[in-house]
């Protein structure tokens, strides 16, 4: 096992050569958002959120860090304008597709996305492939798979019938970042929530700490509305 040296955001670091760039960056404590990555599954590189910028002699390029193996002497920048702009666009697109995903809503608030420029839809899949990989690799079942291409791509069982090999374990739903309880923000469902950004809760330090899944007292939401009124 060799050790390679790379430069992350201007700081030199030494990591194991068998790692991917994402593993190295997480090990070094750099926060990289991901949706299609799971530690127990093979990297897939489809959500593109883990993009980082790599400097080469010929210029810089964006690579998906979850698939990129670390190499001796590479220069990595994780939060350049280009990277952040790309990531924000991706989250915006995915959120417009699946506005009821709390994972995506939280990610949008974290990135400071305040409006969505695309027409909101109400799909229930971002095609991250976590369920397909989990079913195949961890559950040793392979009951679901991708079919079609382009906009017609979807996850189904063979012949769209009840699968003979599915054990109803529910792992696909457990791992899914979209099929979950929707955000309990103060915007109606199907829109950008942004509560974590705008609302100042009274009972906790930040909005994320409120037990959003339960019926909350709503005082912070009312306060948020008051703030809006004061602004206008």
């Amino acid at each position: 096992m060799g050790i390679v040296t790379l430069k992350v955001n201007g700081i030199e670091a030494r990591v194991d050569e068998s790692w991917t760039l994402l593993e190295a960056l997480r090990f070094l404590g750099v926060e990289i958002p991901t949706l299609c990555h799971h530690d127990g599954l093979t990297p897939y590189g489809v959500c593109r959120l883990c993009m980082v910028e790599i400097e080469e002699k010929s210029g810089t390029k964006l690579v998906t860090s979850c698939l990129y193996p670390v190499k001796e002497g590479i220069v990595v920048k994780t939060h350049t304008d280009r990277v952040v702009k790309g990531r924000r666009m991706l989250v915006e697109l995915m959120l417009a597709r699946c506005p009821n995903s709390k994972t995506l809503q939280d990610l949008a608030s974290k990135m400071g996305i305040e409006n969505i420029r695309f027409k909101m839809k109400n799909e229930d899949c971002i095609l991250c492939g976590l369920c397909v990989r989990l079913c195949k690799e961890q559950m040793m079942s392979g009951a679901i798979g991708f079919i079609g291409r382009g906009e017609k791509r979807e996850v189904v069982t063979p012949f769209r019938t009840k699968s003979e090999i599915c054990r109803n374990c529910g792992a696909c739903m457990y791992v899914c970042p979209v099929v979950e309880l929707p955000c309990r923000g103060y915007n109606p469902q199907g829109e950008l929530c942004n509560s974590c950004l705008r609302v100042v809760p009274e009972c906790a330090d930040e909005y994320g700490q409120i037990m959003c899944y339960l019926e909350s007292c709503g005082s912070c939401v009312k306060k948020g509305e008051m703030n809006e009124l004061v602004k206008t």
Partner: peptide, 12 residues
């Protein structure tokens, strides 16, 4: 080969 993979190819 897994049935899911075959079905994917047929639909592709």
């Amino acid at each position: 080969i897994p049935m899911t993979q075959l079905f994917g190819v047929v639909n592709f």
